Amino acid sequence: MSVKVQVWDLAVRVFHWSQVLLLVGLWYTGNEGLMAQHQLMAYTLAALLIARLSWGIYGSATARFSHFAASPLAALRYLRRPKPVLGHNPAGSYMIFFLIFLVSLQLLTGLATFDNSYISDGPFVRYLSADWVSLASKIHKLNIDLIIICVAIHISAALWHSWRHDNVILTLITGKAKGADGTAPNLTKHSWSYFVVTALLLALFYVWQGEMLLKFI
């Protein structure tokens, strides 16, 4: 008999859906030239991401990178015979790591991006050579397209998996999934430290750049 067990803690779920909303907002504000709002969203995403990287080391069992890191062979075996797992599956873990890398790259290059205006220039532009700033700006513009492509693949895979196997989308909303039996272990713990780290980072970014950016909204 299968029962519902807690798979994802609140920290993982808040990060996941906040990242979705912020990426949409960053894409829109970037295209519309709303650069103060764009940068504020970028710093918010940076705080959430850095806290998530920390949570991936000391957080809940299923949130830890060591829990879902898998070999290429394990990922291929999973693709041949998909089945419900408690946490990220071996194939999906590669997309998770790749998206974290791409979003990190986008945030870092944004700090060094030149856009011919004081508001939208990254804070590191003044400290770097013109060649480095030009390279960062090019990567920043190209990388967002790669992020969109990967997100589309990720969503398609999640929809397919939810249809054919277990509803991973619903699990990321409720945090619960079907376990093998009633003895399934508790894979999560309290997420308060994740939100403390996020709040501290947001405060740091506000003091550094946020207060100035709010004047342009």
Rank of each mutant, 00 (worst) to 15 (best):
A36L: 01
A91V: 07
T29D: 07
L86P: 01
T113L: 05
L99R: 08
G110Q: 08
G25M: 01
T113N: 11
L73A: 15
I50K: 06
V85W: 00
R64H: 10
F101C: 13
S104L: 14
A61K: 15
A63F: 03
G33L: 00
L107A: 03
A70R: 13
L26F: 02
S120K: 13
G59K: 13
M95Q: 09
L48E: 03
I96W: 01
A47D: 05
G56E: 10
S93E: 06
V24H: 00
A61W: 14
F65R: 08
V24D: 04
R80Q: 13
F101D: 10
V85L: 00
A70Y: 14
R52G: 09
S66M: 14
A69K: 04
A69I: 07
A69T: 10
L49D: 00
L23H: 08
Q19N: 15
A42I: 10
L76G: 08
T62I: 06
I50Y: 09
G33Q: 06
Y94R: 03
Y94V: 09
G56D: 05
Y78P: 01
Q39V: 00
G92S: 04
P82K: 04
L53E: 07
Q37V: 07
D115Y: 03
L86M: 14
F98K: 07
R64F: 09
A36K: 02
M35S: 08
D121T: 12
P90E: 01
V24P: 03
Y118V: 14
L48T: 00
A61P: 13
S104T: 15
G56K: 04
N31C: 03
I50R: 11
F65E: 09
S93C: 02
P72W: 10
V103A: 06
R81T: 13
L48V: 04
H67N: 15
G56C: 07
A75K: 05
S93P: 05
A112C: 12
L105C: 12
G25W: 01
Y58F: 15
T109V: 09
G30W: 00
L26V: 01
A75R: 01
R52Q: 07
L76I: 13
S66F: 12
L48K: 00
Y78S: 01
V85G: 00
Q106A: 13
R77P: 06
L23V: 13
S120M: 08
Y43T: 04
L40S: 02
G110N: 06
A42W: 08
H38M: 03
G59Y: 07
G59T: 10
L102W: 13
R52N: 09
R52D: 05
D121C: 09
H67F: 15
L49V: 05
S120V: 06
K83W: 00
S104V: 12
L34P: 05
G30Q: 02
N89F: 05
L79V: 11
Y58G: 12
V24W: 05
V20I: 11
F101G: 15
I57F: 15
G87S: 02
Y94D: 07
G33R: 06
V85F: 04
G110L: 04
V103S: 09
L102S: 08
M35R: 12
S71P: 12
G25P: 01
P84K: 00
T29K: 01
V24A: 13
L86F: 04
F65Y: 14
R64Y: 13
L79T: 03
W55V: 07
V20A: 07
G92F: 04
L73P: 07
